[in-house]
Design a binder for these strands. Structure first.
Lengths: 252, 252
DNA sequence: GTAATTAGTGTAATAGTTACACTTTGTGAA
DNA sequence: TTCACAAAGTGTAACTATTACACTAATTAC
């Protein structure tokens, strides 16, 4: 009771102190994005519990008593995929009164980006089953998960233009075409090939590895890697602004 | 007990169900910005309660049981200032384990923008006393309020370049110089007068009222107003990008 | 060796950004 | 009434970034 009564001392005396200590729970949801050469995917779990048992939903879990929020989000990811050390971003907190049928639940939404090749489904208490879904399949989710998903995808769209986070979704060595397809998938528009290459190379943080793609039935592409150190030196203070013309974009 | 036990059914069975229902509280903080002709200000309250009694802190309060998060943030603002219908934005949620000395407290941080002239200190249960502070005075705040403040100010800096929110801080009729000073205060850099005017006028959502400033001991400036409808029509889909050269900015 | 497939490349027109300094219009004091 | 003061208001040329656009090169599979 000690914690409770102390918190209540700090509360407004206009209200009954107990009003501020109602039954509630808080959770994190972590929207996990992956990219598989062609499409942007999201990892959904099949719920093993009521409510909405057996429906596909965003992965999430309660935050433990002695656990920070970011840690909880990382734990959800790690338990589900075994992947650690990823790009993680807190997006928005959802706490409408009626959003959970069983009571007041506040959910802090994160997204994270992983290399889909690193993914290996783990036996996990969080989910019965997990699977990658195309973005277009992500609708009709339970709770307010459609809204949460939209907020996270939206944030990703904004961030991709200002931070070098695309590389988190690609293997360490990638071709410029793969990178372009990734940008196109996130931004949901086709980009002009020459302008894309000119722009991204002019930013000067990609290193040409002088290696060629193998095992493709056409002219092999050069492989590049992202130079994080160089990025830091060049852009740490000012940041960048990636904006390339979609193909056949009409001028006003 | 009904709510509690139902939520607990939905929880992971790997953990003791009660672990997910520990003693906790959640609050909103609302960082209230105002602009007084020259400087950007923040409204701080003098805490009337332990911990940190009598220290200046960010305004905040518990979220009530039947209250949405945004509503709670608006309530904090209204109780403190009487101002309603403002620009409000959720910024980030803070929930580190040790951030509150009395127990686990999750805080959802918002900022809001008000016209300082509308402000009138209300008798309020939230604060003993409230006062505007210059940005440079906002440091050494209790809890992790320095970090919360930084996150909100940062967000404001980003948003001012992409949304027409500056007008929320100015009277309905304002001069271009006032507007420029506001941008300078938020961005923390001096801007070039001619470039600023050219850019903001070219955006085509300011209306020249054909009225002049009164009561100044120099050439009076023209008054403008922001045309919200026109803004919507022009920018609803694409948004804008406000970026004007600081004065004497050196090129690389 | 030829068809299929994707990689890779340059330029001119246009649009946007930047740097920069003097004239105008009002007030208020002598 | 005029002069000092203060801030308002204004244009342009140089530079930089963005856009639109189509063919040749390299490889594999048959």
């Amino acid at each position: 009771m000690e914690v409770k009564s102390n918190i209540l001392e700090a509360t407004s005396n206009k209200n009954n102190a107990f009003d501020n200590f109602f039954k509630s729970a808080f959770t994190v949801d972590n929207i996990i994005f992956g990219f598989d050469e062609a499409d942007l995917k999201v990892l959904l779990i099949k719920r093993g519990e009521i409510p909405y048992e057996n429906q596909w939903a965003l992965p999430g879990n309660f935050v433990y008593q002695d656990e920070n929020l970011d840690t909880a989000a990382k734990r959800v990811l790690a338990e589900l995929t075994g992947v650690k050390n990823v790009h993680l971003e807190q997006v928005k907190t959802f706490g409408s009164v009626g959003r959970h049928p069983f009571g007041r639940v506040i959910t802090i939404a994160y997204y994270s980006l992983i290399k889909i090749s690193d993914y290996r489904l783990h036996v996990s208490s969080i989910a019965q089953e997990a699977a990658w879904h195309s973005l277009s399949d992500v609708k009709g989710l339970p709770f307010d998960h459609d809204e949460i998903f939209a907020a996270c995808f939206n944030r990703l769209k904004l961030n991709i233009k200002r931070q070098p986070i695309g590389f988190e979704l690609l293997p360490p060595k990638f071709t410029l075409t793969q990178l372009q397809h990734l940008y196109e998938a996130i931004l949901e528009e086709k980009l002009d090939k020459r302008n894309f290459r000119k722009k991204i190379l002019s930013m000067d943080f990609l290193i040409d590895l002088n290696e060629l793609q193998e095992g493709v039935a056409h002219r092999p592409a050069k492989l590049f890697k992202f130079d994080k150190e160089r990025y830091r030196r060049l852009y740490e203070e000012e940041g960048f602004h990636f904006d390339v013309a979609p193909t056949k974009h009409k001028k006003k």
